[in-house]
Amino acid sequence: MGNHVFANYGEVVAMLLFGIGFTNLLLQKNMIKKIIGLNIMDTAVYLFLAEKGYIEGHLAPIVVNGDLNPETYINPIPSGLVLTGIVVSVSVTALMLSLTIRLYRRYHTLDLDEITTRLKKEGR
């Protein structure tokens, strides 16, 4: 068990970060901190993917000298997935931030629970 954890420390760190991000997104009251949690969570997934795609001693998957031997390069698919994932997470973060700005302008607070109680009090 200990051996495995040590050998795959990158994946272990990625999972820990995922947990940290997930709990932050779920439990923080402050919306900016929630968004930070979201980004930690997504980045942890990219770390996991990069760690999985990397093969010790192999090169980046760019063909230079006509060398088409797959033994030379690392697995390119996880890198592609990371790129796609980054695009998705950027757009989601932008959307969350714009929602936060909307709410802050209207209620002058970043605390989502306080906004909810205030809305309930208004009764609309």
């Binding site: 997930f22 997104l25 989601v92 929602l99």
Partner: peptide, 22 residues
Amino acid sequence: GRCIEAAMRYMIMSLLGSGLFL
């Protein structure tokens, strides 16, 4: 106002879900 707050809550729950799915 109520819709924006609902959208925020919807996004948070959805993103938790898609994080787990990813």
